[in-house]
Design a protein around this nucleic acid. Structure first.
Lengths: 243, 243
DNA sequence: CGCATGTTTGACGATACTCAATGTGTGTGG
DNA sequence: CCACACACATTGAGTATCGTCAAACATGCG
């Protein structure tokens, strides 16, 4: 089992590389950030319903967020990589809308939101970065909605793998070979597929030499093949436009 | 054909009711908002790839947003009601990530983002409201992801109708009887279902007296029935937790 | 080693997609 | 005003895909 991935630590916290702030701004930001002790696999960083107080930046390791729906079933809402922010959805309800759980050994920085808000009044660049990150979160989720709206299991899994690939690349890791930290059942839950379908589809893609799978290790052999799975031009809504 | 729904107009713009700001703050905000002429069905408010400059608040009518994916197919990413904000996802790329199109006669307010940003440094409550709205957008989208991750067409459509119901209620309209502004094909595209499946599922739910459908008019007869469709406790990921 | 957890594979049936035809409504022009 | 064209919606028949159930197979851990 290899070490969980991490971003370069620097200054108070591993955050400066992603926030693009000046030294002064970083110092101010660093002043309000609390470093927390690492979480072990299965431990939760916050829980659904807890009062919202802070957002969290993942420093190392991968986190999954889940909600319990009306039927009492647990549904995964996201996987979070180092450098990504947790808890942004809790602000408007003043409570966390889901539970964040470590998938492996995880290190996070806690950023008290009230202080971040005050600070953002004084530091324009920090404010813009924060907005920007929230905007990105919105965009990422729309992207995920596109994945989920695909009709075939192959497309869903293909898009899922490509998304992972992009995020590993952004972290400086290989975008063609990586480790699926989460379980097959998690992938299925996240994508709205049965576990067995996940397994079978991975096997099928492997047989076609689009990917190689060895347990949790995945190698992407044919990115184009993965991108254009089942690419029948259908399933699109025609524009009303006259415009 | 009835008039498109709208929020109460007030002051410069119909926004104050949703922003919970003081009169002074509203005046300052009103000073930067541009009212735009109405858009007709099929006209676009902004287009995918356009440079990001403003966010838009829907005042009246319904808007759909779409993206064109790798295969050149159009995919719907959202339907927007009066009082909701468009374009928030464009900030981090400095370009709109999708096209926003009027589904009926639509009126919007344009809010130049650069000015909003400046203003938010001076008005703490405005800043918090803005963050709060972005947080809500994130939460709404996660909610939608839950809908899409459902495995059965019935559940997807049921949840879709319930979401619409809640939003109509928030606007002061009936939450049990409303009009589907969008086409069946749009619903299918949005939910990852074939048009025929949308049609058949609506019929099936009607036969079971859960809803009543007459063309675009929908009446919800049994909210509980709609909420707990196909509620087999399965399809959930078991927590790893020891914790 | 043995148990628990996770993954894969097989067989079967239900669900949803495809193709095709038929309804239904709406607006246009004769 | 009606006939027609067009876009949209529904329904039917056949098929592929995916979910379910069950069993075998791996993997990790005490």
């Amino acid at each position: 089992m290899n070490a969980p991935m991490s971003i370069q630590s620097c200054g108070n916290c591993g955050l400066s590389s992603m926030w693009a702030l000046t030294q002064l701004e970083m110092n101010r930001l660093g002043g309000i950030i609390k470093k927390s002790s690492p979480y072990q696999r299965g431990e939760s960083i916050f829980r659904q319903g807890d009062a919202f107080s802070s957002i969290y930046a993942v420093r190392a390791g991968m986190v999954k967020t889940t909600v319990v729906n009306a039927n009492g079933a647990e549904q995964i809402t996201g996987f979070y990589f180092p450098g990504e922010l947790l808890g942004l959805n809790g602000l408007h309800e003043k409570a966390y809308l889901g539970t964040a759980m470590a998938l492996e050994t995880v290190s996070v920085c806690e950023i008290p939101f009230a202080k971040l808000d005050e600070l953002s009044a004084m530091l324009p660049e920090l404010r813009r970065q924060l907005m920007c990150r929230m905007s990105q979160e919105i965009a990422d989720e729309q992207n995920m909605m596109l994945v989920l709206a695909k009709t075939s299991a192959e497309e869903k899994l293909g898009s899922f793998l490509l998304r992972l690939s992009h995020r590993f690349k952004r972290l400086g890791f290989s975008d063609t070979q990586f480790r699926l930290t989460m379980l097959r059942v998690d992938i299925g839950n996240y994508l709205g597929l049965a576990v067995e379908t996940v397994s079978r589809t991975l096997t099928k893609l492997q047989q076609r030499s689009v990917i190689k799978v060895e347990g949790k290790e995945v190698t992407i052999l044919d990115i184009a093949g993965l991108t254009f799975l089942n690419s029948n031009g259908e399933q699109s809504a025609k524009p009303i436009a006259l415009d």
